[in-house]
Write a protein that binds this DNA or RNA. Structure first.
Length: 250
DNA sequence: AAATTAATCAACCGCGACTGT
DNA sequence: AACAGTCGCGGTTGATTAATT
């Protein structure tokens, strides 16, 4: 005899459900989304609970209008990353991927199209094999800060996807994994690797300072010599300069 | 004031990646 | 190696609200 499964509730969350989820997580933390609703007394799927928490209930989720600065970050990030909403949102403290995605479709998409920014990512991939690429790098250097990012991405071939898995580490662990992935294997890494690396090294609050440091690095002859392996160069720079300059103390 | 259309955004769904067994 | 469970992401839907006719 099978136990009749209680129908899971869908649709908008009530205040009571929100309170149940918040108080459960505050008390027991997040341990398993699929089991949690049962223990929290909610007739919701784990997915639904997770979404509600991540996009709405979690502390520090930012509500309200997007600022001009946030607009710019989204526009530029989207031109580099395409529809990678989570990666874009990670540059906007307090904003969720869902928020950014919605905001893009309702406000920014049209603007980006007008400015011809939407397809830049695919064009960029083509550009990497262009013979005029090196000359274009100098142009990038003279553009606003965030374009340094573009330079590092463009140093990579995107063919080797075999080692693109560095996205989950933080702080100390990152060091070892990074070394293991790149220094010992000699693999040049992928665009995604560099993206992850950049995301972790240069949180949005330090973007400007980070980019200034990157500018200095670019003008460094040692970096230029090793420009065929920008991940290694970036990593050395990270250890020698960035890391000691402004990463928060543990 | 009522009907219609457009805009917004919370939530759902399917899929792929990851992890543990 | 194969499988199952879980998580996170991106595309999409649909309910609600605002604006327009």
């Amino acid at each position: 005899m099978t136990t009749p499964t209680t129908a899971l509730k869908k649709g908008s969350w009530s205040l009571e459900e929100d309170e149940k989820l918040i108080s459960y997580i505050n008390r027991y933390g997040i341990w398993n989304w699929s089991q949690m609703p049962r223990f929290a007394g909610l007739s919701r799927s784990g997915k639904s609970c997770r979404l509600r928490w991540m996009n709405y209930l979690k502390p520090n989720v930012k509500r309200g209008n997007f600022t001009k600065e946030e607009d710019d970050i989204i526009l530029h990030s989207h031109s580099l990353l395409g529809n990678r909403w989570s990666a874009i949102a990670s540059r906007l403290p307090g904003r969720t991927d869902n928020d950014v995605k919605n905001y893009w479709h309702t406000h920014l998409k049209k603007r980006a199209t007008e400015y011809n920014l939407v397809s830049e990512t695919t064009e960029q991939n083509d550009m990497q094999s262009s013979p005029t690429f090196e000359a274009e790098n100098m142009e990038i250097l003279q553009q606003p800060d965030n374009h340094m990012h573009e330079f590092f991405e463009s140093c990579f071939t995107s063919e080797d996807d075999s080692s693109s898995s560095c996205c989950t580490t933080t702080s100390k662990d990152h060091d070892d994994e990074f070394r293991a992935n790149y220094f010992h294997t000699g693999s040049p890494g992928t665009v995604d690797d560099l993206q992850c690396f950049w995301d972790q090294l240069c949180p949005v609050e330090n973007l400007e300072l980070g980019n200034n440091l990157y500018r200095n690095m670019f003008s460094d002859p040692i970096f230029q010599d090793s420009c065929n392996d920008p991940i290694s160069s970036t990593y050395s720079f990270y250890n020698n300069d960035y890391n000691t300059s402004f990463l928060p103390n543990p």
